[in-house]
Amino acid sequence: MLTIEQLSLRLPHYGTGYAAWWKRSWATCLDNLSLHFLTGEVHALVGASGAGKSLLAYAIMGLLPASARLNGQLCYQGQLLDKRSQKTLRGRELALIPQSLNALDPLVRTQRQVAWAAERAGQSSGSARQSARQALDHYRLDTRAQQAYAHELSGGMARRVLTAMAHVSQAQLVIADEPTVGLDPHQRQRVLAALRDLADQGKTVILITHDLRHALPIADRVTIMRSGKLIETAPAHAFQGTGRSLTNAYSQALWLALPDNAFTLPKPCAASIADKAAGIKAQQEISVA
């Protein structure tokens, strides 16, 4: 479905003060990632903040800032992705549920925005309106919420509107960036179940989250990332018991740190985790350009 081969991403890192431009150095944000996403799976990308999960999503969508330097290959259904093909596929084949609720247009009513997403996917304006209404009903947004502006929605409602937009776009690859932040347990279940549904319909869902525990029940495979590097890709059922079937010490530590499990940090791993506290920037090789 989607193959990522040896993807590296560098972003400029500016010094402070006068003449900062000339003191520009490069921070490696993604480091030699190779990943393969299958059709019909929910693939969870898990990692601490600053691990580069969202940047990977932007790289797939082609939404990186112009100053970013990208190396490596992205291959979507046998077709090489570049800026131009990403622009055509965005909103039709590829859909992103963004992390920030600011992605909603503040001047347009909810239903109209969702209809836009359907139109972008090639529907006529009449049927777009119809499918927007259906999708919003599906996510239990009542008529009042459908006619509301973005600032009138609660955080949970706004998230469901964004999810509905990905739903109507009929995209084959849906990337959900932290879709459950700020939702209470009931709403979280509903959004996660909706993502699982999409995968069961034969679409590919990439679920970006730091919440390993709630991703596990719906995920088929889990990829652990840490400061731009790929740590491990494991099937969801590997996360059980003492996590012995996980090959990497960091993913084991992540699993054991959950309150349902040991809620402690294993001793040999503590040192490698401590360097995380020393700041992600210190670890990344910042090379002077």
Binding site: A48, H210, L212, L254, T264, L265, I273, K276
Partner: peptide, 10 residues
């Protein structure tokens, strides 16, 4: 809530 499991434990 917004921390990953390891930072949470720490």
């Amino acid at each position: 809530t917004m921390l990953d499991p390891i930072t949470q434990v720490e």
